[in-house]
């Protein structure tokens, strides 16, 4: 299996190999069926590239993944602040109105500060009711002094996140690394696939050659 690298995107086979392949291709009858040697049409190549980028964009772990408890820690602090409590205690408003107003107050005041969680907060809106349910659990975790990024909000509970990242010292923490493991494997998976399939196809006779099907039958 000698490979020719002079024009790698044209062909990876030697002239002799191609000649042999072409001879077999044209002279044997596969049960009355023949195969052509056409390339993938350009628009279809475009579609495949689009598919890959769609796959990456649509499943980027930030979308639809459960939020970490860390992004709501400031919400909890603000919820317990006097200005927000005043809104929540406002007897002139209905519960729904005061909840919405208080949440608005929290989000607008947090927008003013630079935070690594701003993007995630935009992705994961939380209602006052849900915040009330998770707040005591977050406070409890803060009291214990654990890293809130190791916890996720699942419904009304704050649960240990299902991330498993191995640290240099061998311990495992439940924190998502910036390179998500699954996402990284997926990229390599596709790259290796694309590389192998290009090699496989470039070993065939070049697509400018069209087999003559009149020889076999």
């Amino acid at each position: 299996m000698s490979w020719v690298f002079s024009r790698p995107l044209y062909s990876l086979s030697s002239k002799d190999q191609n000649k042999e392949a072409q001879y077999i291709w044209e002279h044997e009858s596969l049960g009355g069926i023949a195969e052509n040697n056409n390339p993938l049409p350009r628009p279809v190549i475009g579609l495949l590239v689009l598919t890959f980028f769609t796959a990456m964009m649509l499943t980027m772990p930030l979308y639809g993944q459960r939020p970490t408890a860390a992004i709501f820690a400031d919400y909890v602090t603000l919820m317990n602040s006097s200005s927000v409590q005043k809104v929540l205690d406002d007897k002139t408003l209905t519960h729904a109105e005061s909840d919405a107003k208080a949440m608005k107050l929290i989000t607008t005041s947090l927008e003013k500060f630079e935070s690594p969680y701003n993007f995630q907060r935009e992705q994961h809106h939380i209602t006052m009711n849900q915040l009330r349910m998770v707040a005591p659990q977050i406070v409890e975790l803060q009291r214990k002094g654990v890293d809130l990024e190791e916890y996720t909000i699942v419904g009304a509970t704050v649960a240990k996140a299902t991330f498993f990242s191995i640290q240099p010292d061998g311990t495992i923490i439940n924190k998502q690394p910036w390179w998500d493991k699954g996402y990284t494997i997926a990229i390599w998976w596709f790259v290796i696939f694309a590389f192998s399939i290009i090699i496989a196809v470039k070993r065939l006779p070049h697509f400018t050659w069209a087999p003559d099907h009149t020889i076999a039958h």
């Binding site: 639809g64 459960r66 699942v154 419904g155 009304a156 509970t157 649960a159 240990k160 299902t162």
Partner: peptide, 17 residues
């Protein structure tokens, strides 16, 4: 299996690992 996204309001706490 209550789902982690919307279901918990109706069906309760989703299970953890």
């Amino acid at each position: 299996l209550p789902e982690e996204t919307q279901d918990w309001q109706s069906f309760g706490r989703p299970p953890v690992t």
